[in-house]
């Protein structure tokens, strides 16, 4: 969200306000931890630009690498016990299976507002502040 002139002025005075990113708007960087995802889809419904959406494929690796104490830990453990090799590639999900869908994240459309991170109950979506270097460069071409 580009700042108005008055916003710009306030921004200059604030000592550690979050600096602008290269896209000219306040934003953070979204990092996804797929193995923590429980497929609830709240991030997709919270995302204003459609950068985050529920796909119709599922990457079994999410289950295979789910930490034991997480919501899908038991399922992941069961899969690992009987697996003959690590899963490769993703599998198609029938339409009535709602929760086992890998989230599709399109960084180009993401404006870094962090809504998905706030909505995510398991920390699968994390919003990191933009690295300092980039701020400096952003500052110049404002």
């Amino acid at each position: 969200m580009p700042l108005t002139a008055r916003g710009e002025a306030i921004f200059e005075r604030l000592p550690n306000a979050a600096p602008r990113t290269s896209t000219g708007s306040i934003g953070c960087q979204i990092v996804r931890h797929e193995e923590l995802c429980i497929g609830c889809g709240r991030c997709a419904s919270a995302c204003p630009t459609g950068a985050t959406s529920k796909g119709d494929m599922f990457d079994p690796m999410q289950l295979y690498s789910a930490p034991p104490e997480s919501r899908r830990g038991a399922l992941g453990a069961a899969l690992r016990t009987i697996a003959r090799h690590q899963p490769s590639g993703s599998i198609a999900v029938p339409d009535r299976v709602a929760a086992f869908r890998t989230i599709v994240f399109d960084a180009a459309r993401c404006i870094g507002c962090g809504a998905c991170a706030r909505a995510c109950p398991t920390g699968a979506a994390e919003a990191l502040p933009v690295p300092a270097a980039e701020i400096a460069s952003a500052g110049m071409n404002g």
Partner: peptide
């Protein structure tokens, strides 16, 4: 029980 089997948060 359809919803129970589908509930992502348990």
């Amino acid at each position: 029980g359809i919803c129970v089997a589908e509930c992502p948060s348990g």
